[in-house]
Design a protein around this nucleic acid. Structure first.
Length: 614
RNA sequence: GGUUCCGUAGCUCAGCUGGAUAGAGCAGCUCACUUCUAAUGAGCAGGUCCCAGGUUCGAAUCCUGGCGGGAUCACCA
């Protein structure tokens, strides 16, 4: 904002001319004046008191006079303790309103020519999406939108984890127990259909394991390996993976299937492609409901062998080292991390290798300046290591990598576990929240008057707004618990609350054709509600910048709430259509228009749509 | 145990690189729809900002050490 810089510069020149003290503009701390005090913007003068051996009041008065004399838009000042508060002229604020109103796509920053790739969602193909994915998707999507508004060219991508033992489990389960059932024949959404067989596998395996525990072999293992006081239950709980790998019939069949898949066995590959296509149909439906899409998909089945070449090159340059058993490692101890394996002794890639290779492929595909990975905080360490490795390999974008880490969504009963069926399904929760919007709409004439289709559209927007806002308003890194028994709020600090502010504006503006709100040249005194709104509106571009720098959509959500709240207050206190004068009316119409545009734009950054009526 | 993130009102959360009397929502209690939409607004009540030190004009914010909780510490992904 130009005015802030002007005031800062003026303070600098004031310090120089009055006190012969040189300072940089960046040293002048400025903020919005708190509403308990008189003024618009505040400079904190404490930092200079000591250096100038002056007292805060005197210093404030001197600087205040200097600024008022030199900056035309500053009308007056007052000093409270060490706080120098400036009031700007009403003409200044009116000009701001005009400027914002005339700015195309207000809030967005000019293109900076830099490409950033954002990876999010990244599901496994053996089970449907749940509430945790929704948080991931919302973060990824809104982060992409925010970066776009901040001037980047954004490539939205996901890596689809379409291979591995878990995928084979559902394939095997369907093959053995499916009897040729399909999503069509069972009238089940594809991803849920496949997920059902994944869960079935786990059940069958559990039963097999329980039977085995009672066999002679099982009991021998128990007596030989259990430690001291360990209970039988505890022992077998921890022994599960070993059993799966060494003894289980189902486990071995699944592992054989994985080997066959890797050997490109045709029947297995065909089965795999068929089941994956079911899953993708399901995912696409869910993505459509949430309202997101991707520019580029990467599949783990294509990338899982990547990175090996890079490891060879890195070996030559001594970034990596080879151990006696032929496994390849990197030593990150001098960076405060451990040694990390990047190639198994049999020469195959691990997760890390894959991610190294994938990063390079992405750079080759797009020539990125920056990459953002939206992945849960359980992988904090993985990404710390990955970024360090890419740095050591000298990748050009390595200093511009960011792991957008977020906390898990838990249930009152604890963690969500797909295998145990304790998940809040993504499709279900969206349906539920739309139903809740429906319940809240029963007494609303505006909605009752619409035709069925329009009604559904509005209810969908309201319900999804409630869900999305609830999740995105919380800082990413914080964990959150979700209680499925409690309904999602539609009142107070919520998505529908912000939508309602927007809707109220629309219902007023609808009365005017093509934005003919008139002029407000003779509107002299803005009231406190108008000023508060205008000040908040003007902050929008800076908010986008800061949100992009911090990869933090929650700050935008809080801004939406704050602006909406101010509008509701304004709407309640101030007459628009029956304003005191024509100029006051015109001013308020323009102001409302600008607020509604910012609200819409800001909510769109969060992936939330605005209804025209509700 | 090592590393890391979190701890603010009964509950869910804001509080920007240190700044004025720590703010919202929900829940509770009161008010306000013949008015541009009450999914709204106004008010009351609710606090040892986990604890203890330190840094300084000034600390919820920064540093150190505790306490409590989550995550992680695989030749799994």
């Amino acid at each position: 904002m130009k005015i802030l810089q002007e005031i800062q510069s003026s303070i600098v020149s004031g310090l120089d001319s009055i006190y012969n003290h040189s300072a940089n503009r960046e040293d002048i701390l400025m903020s919005q004046t708190r509403k308990e005090f008189q003024g618009d913007y505040t400079v904190v003068v404490f930092p200079f008191v000591k250096a100038l051996k002056s007292n805060p009041i005197e210093l404030g008065n001197n600087l205040g006079e200097h600024v008022v004399a030199n900056v035309a838009s500053v009308e007056s000042f007052n000093v409270v303790k060490g706080f120098l508060n400036f009031s700007l002229t009403h003409d200044y604020w009116k000009s701001q309103l005009i400027e914002v109103g005339e700015t195309e796509n207000f809030g967005a920053h000019p293109k900076n020519g830099k490409k950033v790739l954002v990876e999010f969602s990244s599901p496994n193909t053996n089970k449907p999406l749940h509430l945790g994915h929704i948080r991931n998707i919302l973060l990824g999507w809104s982060c992409s939108q925010i970066l776009d508004a901040a001037g980047y060219d954004v490539i939205k991508t996901q890596i689809i984890n379409d291979r591995g033992i878990a995928v084979c489990k559902s394939m095997l389960s369907w093959q053995k127990f499916g009897n040729g059932e399909t999503p069509e024949s069972s009238n089940t959404k594809g991803d849920h259909f496949v997920g059902k067989y994944y869960v079935l596998f786990e059940q069958k395996f559990k039963a097999e394991y329980a039977d085995w525990q009672k066999t002679e072999k099982g009991q021998v293992v128990l007596t030989e390996l259990r430690k001291g006081e360990q209970s039988e239950e505890d022992f077998f709980g921890k022994y599960k993976n070993i059993y799966f790998n060494d003894y289980s019939v189902l486990g071995n069949e699944a592992k054989d299937m994985l080997l066959a898949w890797e050997a490109k066995d045709e029947p297995i590959r065909n089965l795999w492609m068929m089941m994956n296509s079911w899953v993708y149909d399901g995912f696409n439906e869910t993505y459509k409901s949430i309202g997101v899409d991707f520019d580029k998909l990467y599949y783990e089945s294509d990338t899982y062998l990547l990175g090996k070449k890079t490891v060879d090159e890195g070996l030559e340059r001594d970034v990596f080292f080879r151990q006696d058993d032929d496994s390849v490692w990197i030593d990150l101890e001098d960076a405060g991390m451990d040694k990390k394996i990047v190639l198994r002794s049999d020469g195959t890639a691990v997760y890390m290798t894959q991610d190294i290779g994938t990063a390079m492929v992405r750079n080759a595909d797009f020539g990125v300046e920056k990459m953002v990975y939206v992945v849960g905080n359980e992988q904090d360490y993985h990404f710390k290591v990955l970024f360090e490795i890419l740095k050591r390999l000298g990748e050009p974008y390595a200093n511009e990598l960011h792991h957008l880490s977020y906390g898990m969504i838990g249930l009152p009963s604890g963690k969500m576990k797909s295998r145990e069926g304790t998940v809040v399904d993504a499709d279900d929760i969206m349906v539920e929240v739309i139903n809740e919007a429906r319940l809240g709409s029963v007494d609303r004439g505006e909605i009752a008057e619409m035709d069925k289709e329009a009604q559904e559209d509005v209810l969908r927007k309201i319900g999804l707004a409630a869900l999305k806002f609830m999740i995105i308003k919380i800082q990413p890194k914080k964990g959150m618990t979700f209680d499925p028994k409690e309904s999602v709020d539609m009142q107070g600090q919520t998505g529908p609350y912000v939508q309602y502010a927007y809707v109220r504006i629309q219902s007023v503006l609808r009365k005017f054709e093509n934005n003919k709100y008139g002029s407000f040249d003779d509107y002299k005194e803005l009231n406190e509600f108008e000023l508060a709104l205008l000040k908040e509106v003007v902050e929008f571009p800076n908010l986008i910048k800061v949100a992009a720098e911090n990869y933090d959509p929650s700050s935008i959500a809080n801004y939406c709430y704050s602006l909406g709240k101010m509008y509701h207050r304004f709407f309640h206190e101030v007459r628009i259509l029956t304003a005191e004068t024509e100029d006051a009316k015109a001013f308020r119409l323009h102001l409302s228009n600008v607020v509604s545009k910012v609200l819409e734009k800001a909510m769109n950054l969060l992936g939330i749509e605005m209804p025209a009526k509700m």
